[in-house]
Write a protein that binds this DNA or RNA. Sequence first.
DNA 1: GCGAAAGTTTAGACAAATTCTAAAAACAGA
DNA 2: TCTGTTTTTAGAATTTGTCTAAACTTTCGC
Lengths: 141, 141
Amino acid sequence: MTRLASHKVMSLVQTQGLKMTPQRRVIVEYLQTTKNHPTADEVMTAVNRKFPMTSRATVYNTLNWLKENGMVKEVFEGGVVHFDPHTAAHHHFVCNKCGKVEDIDCSAINEIKLCSLPDHQKVETMEVTLRGLCAACQKKR
Amino acid sequence: MTRLASHKVMSLVQTQGLKMTPQRRVIVEYLQTTKNHPTADEVMTAVNRKFPMTSRATVYNTLNWLKENGMVKEVFEGGVVHFDPHTAAHHHFVCNKCGKVEDIDCSAINEIKLCSLPDHQKVETMEVTLRGLCAACQKKR
DNA sequence: GCGAAAGTTTAGACAAATTCTAAAAACAGA
DNA sequence: TCTGTTTTTAGAATTTGTCTAAACTTTCGC
């Protein structure tokens, strides 16, 4: 369940000769504490609660930088791009009704066995997306 | 390997009290024959070869209507939204190098067994995304 | 601490993708 | 054919994301 870790961000900043700014700090903090997979817009809103002048460019630059360095993953669910700060191997559950995306621990899914692929592709990683009804939407029925 | 079937579209049209127009027919035909996962823009271009006046709105309306009725799936590849007319249960292989997406037949992946989910979500469908190197990119090495 | 060099942020312009709107056109049934 | 409804169309509007140049911070040697 490895989440985005501050010390990793700090060492990235150092080894790349970058600077740690308050904006970057707040974006990383928000990603660390959120339970969801926020959209760029949700990150924007959260950051603006602390720094009302933060521009879209800063949010996108920071998210893209984190993404390029493997600190967050981009996921597409319900027609919208989300950012997932949970980068260790894991899977997703998407609610067909409310669109919410939840992390599913690797251990919940038994070993997946592949038969040989038709085109002999070399598989490096695999991820499973489950779809259905989340707990909350089941109750609403 | 079920692909978008005309008779299913026809019965959708009937049960929903809609009309089968030439534009809808051409969009469905294009989706049936393409080997790829086209973007909305590619569908637009294809349809305009037969009906040069077809507007964006019509293309998007039709694609969204097909999507809402489960006749096509929206997939996100290389930062762009594509439409996948191949709706029977199947999986995807994404090349980490060239970004190409290939359909993987269900039979290539053995039964996936779920342990009980932490939050008791009700799973309806599951799909696997494999990532690695496609045949072409392996050769280029 | 101070100041210079480098990296960063900002606001707004820009671009692409998608949705919305109002009027014109096409369809299906009487 | 007439009528009412559904569709299509062109273009405007919105959304999402990128780019730019000028102003501003951070870092680091002094």
